[in-house]
Amino acid sequence: MKLSPRFRSLLVRIGPFLGLILVIALFSLPEETRGYFLTYHNFKIIFTQTVIVAIGALGMTLVIISGGIDISVGSGIALSSVVGALLIQHGWGTVAVVVGTVASGALLGLANGSAIAGLRMTPFIITLGMLGVARGVAKWLGDNQTVNYDASPINGWMTTASPFSHSLPPGVWVAVALAVLTAWILRSTVLGRHIFALGSNESAARLCGVPTTRLKVTVYVLAGCFTGLAGLFQLSRLRQGDPTVAVGLELDIIAAVIIGGASLNGGVGGVLGSMIGALIMSVLRNGSQQMGWPTYFQEIIIGLVIIAAVFVDRLRQGKGSG
């Protein structure tokens, strides 16, 4: 299939928006959900449910634009949430818990980045290995069970408990602020331009004096910070550290970024698109629940959406069916 360049660039720009409108319309029309789906309260829930995937997708956007991939992010979220819960258990202050949790994610990113850049190995393989390692460490730290604690202000960051309160929970605002920050980094800093250059053509970037090895490590460490933060909000949502949480979440996150217009070949992508992609994933889950579809049906739909997104990615690349 061949598309004209103009249509292709249009597809890149408005494709994610169209997708979002499509899924929202899909769930707004049927009798079963019409009354409730489009309400502010439901969207408050959808936004809150998006936070974890969205923050993970910010890191993944950096990684994918740089030409890499990180499939250890689901395990990383579980690991960070266990670390956070343990820190609360040990009586650390809230700020220290936040710093510690993010640092645990950054450490995972450092391990990923050093192995990928230092050993010159494929990101897929390294992070596949790290997916197992991080999950194992999380279970080890948590002694193979959930880590509970008495109370923490962190618990309130993701709550949608009160239907009468109109404001969105802090987690949503944090995600929005981080999205703006990441978009700025990508768009208007030397670091951002170098990340695009690395993903677009690593040899050319190297030839032009971009320190590619160091840059790769930086990208994975940054992504790790986002993973740690996503773990913190996972902790806030469950109010416990659960080493078995977020299994397969990396697929939602990668799908969000790809739906948002990033290319798995690197060099292309954007924060706004990734955030819309994350919203599409949440709307799909939220809507299917309200339709009363069984979870296996949701899984099938989300799987198909991922395939469709990668197919659209190929159309955008203009590679046809090769």
Binding site: F196, S200, S203, A204, A205, L207, G267
Partner: peptide
């Protein structure tokens, strides 16, 4: 193409 330019930038 391989090393000189970033074609999609």
């Amino acid at each position: 193409k391989e090393e000189g330019l970033m074609l999609n930038r």
